[in-house]
């Protein structure tokens, strides 16, 4: 049932490419303000599922709403209601810090006054005031990722999709990054995040694990460990992913 408290709702959501079923009838619900971990081995179907939820790919069958909007008919509404960042693509390297913020906020139709005020606040919070007019290329990776996350939620979306946001980031910055995720969640933004770091799965309220296009497990990290009678999320993941028959990617 869709309530005001629901950020994402998927019901037997499916995507086929020819006779290959990339996403096989997945059903789940993400609550508002929840940190939802979306795990799975390479090739399990995570990216395809995420693309459907972001309004970038029309499902073959099934139902889903994101921020209350339908993934078939209201993709433009969805795009306006979400933020997105990934490890691979986040910011324009040859624009300055300020230009990147202005560019993204402009795309989302924010007013100049809003952008100006919030940019000042953001630069201060990230301790990037001195770097405001430097090219993003010159920033260390960890700073870039923190800035990218801030930019992804700059327009105050209901949901933010994070695709491996901390890949390759040093252990201290990785934790600072998760601190930002917690703060965003506390302010009411729903977090939908993928990661290959199993310690980060522990930081999620609930975690789903995809295997061969299906969601084979979905629960809190503590409950998943009890169900599979193991001590760490790493072991939960290995137990499930080893069953996969499909080749990666």
């Amino acid at each position: 049932m869709i309530t005001n408290n629901t950020a994402i709702q998927a019901e037997t959501l499916t995507k086929r490419f020819g006779d290959f079923t990339a996403v096989d009838a997945i059903s789940f619900e993400v609550k508002k303000g929840e940190i939802f971990g979306f795990l799975g081995a390479n090739g399990a179907g995570k990216t395809t599922a995420m693309r459907m939820l972001c309004g970038l790919s029309i499902p073959t069958s099934g139902k889903a709403t994101v921020a209350g909007f339908d993934v078939y008919k209201q993709t433009e509404h969805i795009k306006r209601s979400i933020g997105y960042m990934s490890q691979k693509f986040s910011l324009y390297e040859d624009l300055t810090v300020k230009e990147n913020i202005r560019f993204y906020a402009g795309i989302y139709g924010k007013s100049d006054a809003f952008i100006k005020e919030k940019t000042a606040f953001l630069l201060k919070e990230l301790h990037l005031e001195a770097e405001a007019n430097k090219l993003v290329r010159s920033l260390p990776l960890g700073w870039k990722q923190k800035l990218a996350f801030s930019v992804a939620i700059f327009h105050e979306p209901e949901i933010v999709f994070l695709d491996e946001p901390t890949g390759g980031v040093d252990p201290v910055t990785r934790r600072e990054f998760w601190n930002m995720i917690y703060k965003a969640a506390e302010s009411g933004i729903t977090i939908f995040v993928t990661t290959h770091y199993m310690d980060e799965a522990e930081y999620c309220n609930r975690v789903s694990i995809m295997v061969d296009g299906r969601i084979d497990a979905l629960d809190t990290p503590a409950q998943l460990k009890r169900t599979f009678e193991v001590r760490s999320m790493d072991e939960v993941f290995l137990k499930l992913a080893r069953k996969a028959k499909r080749a990666a990617d």
């Binding site: 799975g40 081995a41 390479n42 890949g167 290959h196 290995l238 992913a241």
Partner: peptide
Amino acid sequence: TTGVDAVSRK
């Protein structure tokens, strides 16, 4: 092993 899942890394 960058970007590779836990099983393939092992």
